[in-house]
Computed example of a mutant assay.
Amino acid sequence: MAIRYKLIPNEQMDTVKHLCNELMSYQKSLATIRPELFNGMSFETRMVPSVKNAKANQIIAAMDGDEMVGYVYSNVSPKEVYSNDFATFFDMDSVKGTEVGCLSQFYIKEGYRSMGIGSVLFEKSKSWLDTFDGIDDQFIYVSNGNDDALNFYISKGFKTSHQILDGFITVLRNTKRASL
């Protein structure tokens, strides 16, 4: 099997709709804290608004032939979009700039996990986020119960920052600070 990676333009984001909805179902299946919060989460409620609110977006799909077997969605957004009716995702004063980078969604289908696909998608996402000057803070939000994802991101250098919504989400952060 030769996995290839394909950049998906924003105008074609609906091609990952099925994977995004699978991700929401997968997260709900793992959740031990308030799994009912996932009932209102879908491509239309999570990805579409995020893409619209972001300054820059990147969607990369992992392809096995013509089949899309995983994806990563990352964005650079004004930090204020992370404080809304659902939650405040981090202390706004702790972010140096006006924008943050976020690895927002990451999913690999069952049967394709533990094959290195996740590492490739992560590295492509992280490399893209690192190209933005002035973005010192990068975040990843991991739903409760998804310990494999949490440990994966920690192994890639992200640090646990805090939890929100009484442990429903663990916030991971990577901050690059220029040396003085």
Rank of each mutant, 00 (worst) to 15 (best):
K52C: 09
V142H: 12
V72C: 04
S127V: 09
D166V: 06
Y153E: 08
I140C: 05
G97K: 01
G134Q: 11
K126T: 03
Q58F: 08
I60E: 07
L165G: 06
Q163A: 13
S74V: 03
D85T: 14
I164D: 12
S143C: 14
Y153C: 11
N75R: 13
H162W: 06
L121T: 00
S83I: 06
M63K: 12
W128K: 03
D166E: 15
F106T: 00
D148N: 12
F168W: 11
F139D: 05
F158A: 08
I117G: 01
L165S: 10
V76H: 03
K55A: 14
G111N: 04
E123V: 01
F158K: 06
F86E: 13
Q163S: 15
T131Q: 10
I108M: 01
Y107A: 02
E110D: 12
K156E: 02
V72M: 03
V142L: 08
F90Y: 15
I169P: 05
P78F: 10
M68H: 09
K124Q: 12
N144I: 13
D136I: 05
S74A: 15
G101W: 01
I59K: 05
E80V: 10
G167H: 09
S94N: 10
S50D: 08
M68F: 05
M92C: 05
F132Q: 04
Y73P: 01
A61G: 14
K124H: 09
L121D: 00
G167Q: 08
N144W: 07
V51M: 13
N84S: 10
F132G: 04
